[in-house]
């Protein structure tokens, strides 16, 4: 099932002031959910990613894949969002996998020394097999 949905508008803090919605593709099958955010993830857009991640985790999938191939930029608010999701996923026995990272995005995980904390693979095919 493939559905392209705009993430719910998160009105926490200043997020709702951006005037733009981040598009996040949601692909769901029996065992996993794949989220593909489109666009830059910063303080303006990370609340929308957070809403989508939490929504996906509420379905208790065995695996949640975040495909970052359409994400050219991420700051620490995006990383914090993913850390929060990873911790929630661990508590609910969901495996969180990141894939499709551009070098520019990967570098922030390396700077924050989180590249070894997350499961990071090249693409969605690899993510399905880990």
């Amino acid at each position: 099932m493939m559905a392209r949905i705009p993430a719910d508008v998160a009105q926490r803090g200043l997020a709702g002031m951006s005037g733009e919605q981040m598009k996040i593709d949601v692909e769901q099958n029996e065992a996993s959910v794949v989220l593909t955010p489109h666009g830059e993830i910063d303080l303006s857009s990370s609340p929308e990613l957070r809403e989508s991640l939490l929504s996906a985790l509420r379905g208790n999938p065995s695996k949640l894949i975040v495909n970052l191939c359409k994400t050219p930029y991420m700051d620490s608010s995006g990383v914090a969002t993913l850390v929060e999701a990873m911790q929630k996923a661990m508590r609910s026995q969901t495996k969180l996998v990141l894939c499709g990272m551009e070098d520019k995005v990967r570098s922030i995980f390396e700077i924050a020394r989180l590249d070894a904390v997350f499961t990071i693979v090249d693409d969605t095919d690899a993510a399905q097999t880990v």
Binding site: S76, V83, Q87, I111, A112
Partner: peptide, 14 residues
């Protein structure tokens, strides 16, 4: 401390 993996608090380090 980066060994304390939790959301937030990375900005100054970066």
């Amino acid at each position: 401390d980066l060994d304390d993996v939790r959301p937030g608090g990375l900005g100054v380090h970066i």
